[in-house]
């Protein structure tokens, strides 16, 4: 069951009302980020930051290993009268590689967790206008105890301008 809303504000207020009334909402699709929507839907906070941090640590360790091993151990070299292992000189490269690993690692995780990948169409297309100007609420009738008519009425009351049924 698909509820189509015209306004981000209306749908943001509709979500807690519907959840209170006992409607289980599968997901909300919108053309832009609505702040507070994930909280309203009760989604857990994303853990992508932890992944990013771990990638950053990996990058940092790789960079230090590379510079210290090549410059100080594999072929020790004195440049400009400095110690073969002079950490301050390696900080720029360590920083760059930390950023590189974090960014690419995090973005890879982002693609995987969101299921973004080679695909010509949107596999979760409930309404094509959800990338343009409409805010779409998807409700799985199988997972809900309420009847279709009850949910329809609830959606209408909270401001949905269209309620459609879609088979998958």
């Amino acid at each position: 069951m698909v509820g189509v809303y015209d306004d981000d504000e209306v749908i943001l207020h509709a979500v807690p009302k519907l959840r209170k009334a006992g409607v289980k909402i599968s997901e909300v699709y919108s053309p832009f980020a609505i702040h507070g929507m994930d909280d309203a839907l009760g989604h857990p906070r994303t853990r992508i930051g932890i992944a990013a941090f771990l990638f950053g640590v990996t990058g940092c360790i790789c960079a230090l290993t590379l510079t210290i091993w090549t410059m100080g151990i594999d072929w020790p070299m004195i440049v400009g009268g400095k110690d073969p292992i002079s950490i301050p000189n390696y900080i720029p490269i360590t920083f760059e590689l930390t950023v590189l690993f974090t960014a690419f690692g995090m973005v890879t995780v982002f693609f995987i967790t969101n299921g973004l990948g080679p695909s010509l169409v949107n596999p979760n297309m409930f309404d094509p206008r959800s990338t343009d100007n409409k805010f779409v609420m998807a409700i799985d009738l199988k997972g809900n105890r309420m009847t279709e008519a009850e949910i329809t009425q609830q959606l209408r009351e909270t401001g949905a301008e269209e309620v459609n049924i879609k088979q998958f």
């Binding site: 980020a33 994930d38 960014a103 982002f110 596999p123 297309m125 990338t131």
Partner: peptide
């Protein structure tokens, strides 16, 4: 455009992650 968009669906979860990584990428 379909292949470039990689099946983006604009769900609330996706947007939350999108906002989060935009912030971290900006911080980086």
């Amino acid at each position: 455009y379909g292949s470039l968009a990689m099946g983006w669906n604009g769900s609330a979860k996706t947007w939350a992650r999108y906002e989060y990584i935009s912030l971290i990428l900006a911080g980086l």
